[in-house]
Amino acid sequence: MQSALTRRTVVGGLVAIAVAPLSTSAAFATPETMSDAMRQELGPDARPQAGRIKITLPELAENANAVSMRIAVDSPMTAQDHVKDILVFSEKNPVPTVARFHLGPRSGQARVQTNIRLAGSQTITVVARMSDASLWIASADVIVTQGACFDGT
């Protein structure tokens, strides 16, 4: 493999630094607005436990307009014990809720995939709600060389 420090990554990094102050406008989510969104979705007293979720995201996303994301939740997916919802949250996108997946025993496995937009390097948080109402949580960090054009930059 070539050295990670190519001209492209250096230029991309400089652009990211130059653009960063602009993208902190009020329209963008912060870790606090993400927490608010999570409280709204899960209830004020929700205490998700860490584990059972595997998030597959690239460590480095070159095209933040379409980043492949896979989520797998460890569950037998039976009528008695299955994943009901998988919720995806962003701490930087203008809208903190990215997706809600609804599954059931007919799913066979708790495994979903989609392409997401990332407004910048950030931590993506995934919460799984089980049929017994228990909540599980996991997160993954993605470094973005150039954010998705949410703000036309």
Partner: peptide
């Protein structure tokens, strides 16, 4: 849906990329 029964559903927001790709499983 399969035979009128919902097998999988998803709610999409602005954070989903253009030309939404969705993959899931079913029995």
């Amino acid at each position: 849906t399969f035979g009128g029964e919902v097998v999988f559903a998803m709610e999409l927001f602005t954070g989903i990329a253009a030309n939404p790709f969705i993959a899931f499983t079913t029995v």
